[in-house]
Simulated scan of single mutants.
Amino acid sequence: MAGKPNKTHATDASVDAFIAELPSETMRDDSRALIRLMQELTGEAPRMWGPTIIGFGSYHYRYASGREGDAPLAGFSPRKPELVIYLMSEVLAPELMATLGKHRRGKVCLYVKRLDDVDLGVLTTLIRRSIALAEETYPQA
């Protein structure tokens, strides 16, 4: 596993062009809102990570298994059925998740059909905590 390269890297692809190609106006508007929020929280400009992830900033991780790579401090992917927001799993506390609104979750992914379905204050708290945890867990030189 340690030798398998990470497929997702920051690219020079245009974030604006990617957003413009999204199939629905709601997804484009929600993506622009998340870009503003994540840019404000990270102080970083948006960049494409692979063909479908919009990320902000980066950190280098190295797991005990030896696997390592780079990941965005904050990021999301506007997929056809829903927005996928990437968070450190430790921040997905039950008390916050209970007040977030309509969503589903995976190990490190939060799935939201529309931003109108969730409490943006709670989402902001989750993203802020995820950024802080990534910076604390993987301090950069």
Rank of each mutant, 00 (worst) to 15 (best):
L96I: 02
R36A: 15
G66P: 11
P78K: 08
L73Y: 00
N6L: 03
L92T: 12
L100P: 14
K107G: 10
V112F: 10
Y59G: 05
G69T: 07
N6W: 07
R128Y: 12
H103L: 02
R62D: 08
L22F: 08
G55Y: 06
A33S: 15
F18G: 08
A71R: 03
I53A: 02
M88G: 03
L34P: 07
I53Q: 05
A64T: 15
P46Y: 11
M1A: 15
L96F: 02
K107I: 12
T8C: 05
L92F: 10
E136S: 14
L37M: 15
L37N: 07
A98E: 15
L126I: 10
G57D: 07
S89D: 15
L87R: 14
R28E: 05
T99F: 08
Y86F: 14
P139D: 05
L96E: 02
S24Q: 03
T11M: 01
A10K: 13
L34S: 00
G43A: 05
P81K: 09
F18D: 00
D70R: 09
I35Y: 06
I54V: 07
L126K: 07
E68R: 06
R36K: 13
S89Y: 14
R79G: 00
E90S: 12
D29A: 15
Y138V: 05
A20T: 01
A33C: 10
M88N: 12
R129D: 15
P78Y: 03
V122H: 04
L123M: 06
A2W: 06
R105S: 02
L126P: 03
D16N: 08
G101I: 07
T137I: 11
A71T: 11
K102I: 06
E68F: 00
L34M: 10
T11V: 09
P139C: 04
M48W: 09
G66Y: 12
D30S: 04
P5S: 15
S65N: 07
E40H: 11
A64M: 10
F56L: 11
L126A: 09
A45I: 02
F76L: 05
R128D: 15
S58L: 05
A10V: 13
Y86S: 10
A93N: 11
D70S: 12
I35W: 02
E40C: 00
L133K: 11
E40M: 10
I53Y: 01
K102D: 08
S31G: 00
Y59H: 03
D119T: 10
K113T: 14
M27C: 06
P23Y: 06
S14G: 02
A17N: 12
R79T: 03
R128P: 04
P81A: 03
P5I: 13
A64Y: 09
A98D: 14
R32N: 09
S24G: 07
K102Q: 06
T124G: 15
I54G: 02
A93C: 09
A98K: 15
G43S: 04
I35R: 10
P23Q: 07
P23W: 00
R28M: 01
A33E: 15
Y138S: 03
G121I: 02
E44L: 06
D16C: 08
G55H: 05
L87W: 14
T99V: 14
K7E: 09
S24K: 11
D116W: 00
A93V: 13
T11H: 09
W49A: 01
A64P: 06
L115F: 01
